[in-house]
């Protein structure tokens, strides 16, 4: 059960838009799954619903055998789910090392400690480990806001990793990168997944990347699950082809 994420009948509407429409999904422990779908399909909303940032109108989210709908966001984090954001979400003035150390403190429930100095030496050592894991050790002393775009995305992922999650959600880890950088990033993500025992779910627009590394794929379209299965199955699915190619010709299945 640890690390399993199961979503049942999840629904969320924004006015007339159904950003999640009766979504049923299951992610096995230790799996690597890609979520694809056109812009506005409801991918980020799905993550927000899972992480507890948004409250669903209906449905359940089972994390490691517990329904977490209605729990505050921090409680869900404490139950082993963490995430990185579509637009890297950082602490601009913190150095890379400080930011990671702070995340480690959070993981260890030391963030409120007043009697000791920041960072605790042990947290700093652990931060270094995570830095090496993602390959940011060279910029450890730089302010987060001065990092290159790619390094900012990496740091965002590193912050999530520092929480030692069982389930990790990455919202477009390759967003806004050139082709070369995308492949490097995705290789890193793949390595991280294979080294840790975690359930990794990532959103990705680049179909080539998805079909290269994901074990399985879920396709979202207008808040609905359009298709799921192995990359090969999904690639041949006529509905998916319709959604991706047909969307331009405005024949929209609602």
């Amino acid at each position: 059960m640890q690390g399993r994420l199961t979503i049942k009948r999840l629904t969320k509407r924004f006015g007339g838009v159904a950003a999640a429409d009766n979504v049923n999904l299951d992610f096995a422990p230790g799996s690597l799954t890609a979520i694809i779908g056109p812009n506005g399909a409801g991918k980020t909303t799905l993550f927000n619903l899972i992480a507890g940032r948004l409250k669903p109108d209906a449905g359940e989210v089972w994390l490691s055998g517990e329904n977490v709908v209605g729990l505050p966001e921090v409680e869900i984090v404490r139950r082993g789910l963490s995430r990185a954001f579509q637009i890297a979400s950082l602490f601009p003035q913190f150095t890379v090392e400080q930011a990671l150390a702070a995340a480690v403190h959070a993981r260890w429930r030391q963030s409120h400690s007043i009697l000791r100095r920041f960072p605790l030496p042990s947290a700093r050592a652990r931060a270094r480990e995570v830095l090496e894991l993602v390959g940011l050790e060279a910029v450890a002393g730089q302010a987060s806001q001065q990092l290159s775009h790619g390094d900012q995305k990496l740091l965002d992922i590193a912050l999530a990793l520092a929480l030692e999650p069982r389930v990790l959600l990455l919202d477009e880890p390759t967003a806004g990168m050139g082709r070369e950088a995308r492949w490097q990033m995705i290789e890193k993500v793949h390595n991280l997944w294979s080294q840790q025992s975690l359930t990794l779910i990532f959103i990705e627009h680049d179909i080539d990347i998805v079909f290269q590394i994901a074990q399985s794929v879920r396709v979202l379209h207008y808040g609905k699950v359009l298709a799921e299965g192995s990359p090969r199955e999904v690639r041949g699915n006529p509905a998916v082809i319709e959604a991706y190619l047909g969307a331009t010709s405005a024949s929209v299945p609602v």
Binding site: A51, R53, E73, V74, V77, R78, S82, R83, F85, S89, L90, F91, P92, Q93, F94, A102, A103, A106, R107, S111, L159, A160, L163
Partner: peptide, 11 residues
């Protein structure tokens, strides 16, 4: 500096 991120880190 970033309450959303702090929340996502469990603060």
């Amino acid at each position: 500096d970033n309450p959303e991120r702090a929340l996502a880190l469990g603060l």
